[in-house]
Design a protein around this nucleic acid. Structure first.
Lengths: 135, 135
DNA sequence: TGCGATCATATCGCGCGCGATTTATATCGA
DNA sequence: TCGATATAAATCGCGCGCGATATGATCGCA
């Protein structure tokens, strides 16, 4: 069962990240939002959702919690009042340095070489897009 | 990011299963419980949890919903009153026939050959056990 | 026998994921 | 210009995943 392997491995991955993220006060999905913002700041909610595969029903409360934690700010666009723009705070930006240590821990826990990891990532990503097309 | 690929692919997989399981009144985790019971019926809650990587805080309410839906029965063991044994009902057993059709749909959606799929499954399963050891 | 430790399951609270609906703003056409 | 339509985000309800705690049954050992 490929689906069960994915299900289990995903859970194992979040369990691996949990104790690493806990000292930073982050959940795993919140961490993914930060990663997205580190690569490109000042995103609208919809753009974040498109990248993460989440809708506003998930993102809105999640981003509110991150805003309360002082990691991001949420502000209506002046040009289009419908749009909410999410921006990193200094605190949110500063966490990128910590993240590198986490990435190292996770990489070591996989027991894979850089090449194996990249190959597996690409295969899974291809599976992902293939399934998304059949959705 | 291997972790994000896993996260996304897992979500894509559950989205793929959702419309297939909906007519049967099943959620994806409930389907996994059925799969486990189809391979071996009359399991205690803890044994199911070990196979699925879930604890009773998740399984107990899930199994109660499945019992309400008439898919399984839950009964205390006479020998050891602490143990709850989960058994398939006729209705739960009958769904195995439907499941074969679902498996076919999912397989086709992956766009993979049988060999590729088995290989990818094994790689992900190995990653899973490797991470579990580092937990 | 009785009492503390252990074990199996259950309960509680919170964050996430999502289908369905709502609110508010923007856009387009008669 | 105005009204229908579209768009962005928010809200609601429910199921899942899990840390923490509780309840109740069994076991071990003096």
């Amino acid at each position: 069962m490929l689906c069960f392997a994915l299900y289990s491995a995903n859970h194992a991955m979040t369990r691996l990240y949990r104790p690493l993220l806990q000292p930073l006060g982050l959940t795993y999905p919140q961490y993914l939002v930060l990663v997205a913002l580190w690569s490109e700041d000042e995103r609208r909610v919809g753009a974040l959702g498109e990248e993460l595969g989440l809708d506003t029903n998930t993102l809105t409360p999640l981003l509110k919690r991150m805003a309360e934690a002082g990691l991001v700010t949420r502000g209506r666009s002046a040009a289009d009042e419908r749009v909410v723009t999410v921006r990193l705070t200094d605190k949110g930006r500063a966490l990128e340095a910590e993240a590198e240590r986490i990435t190292t821990c996770v990489f070591e826990a996989t027991g894979l070489s850089v090449e194996e990891l990249a190959d597996l990532r690409d295969r899974i990503a291809r599976l992902n897009t293939e399934i998304a097309e059949h959705l």
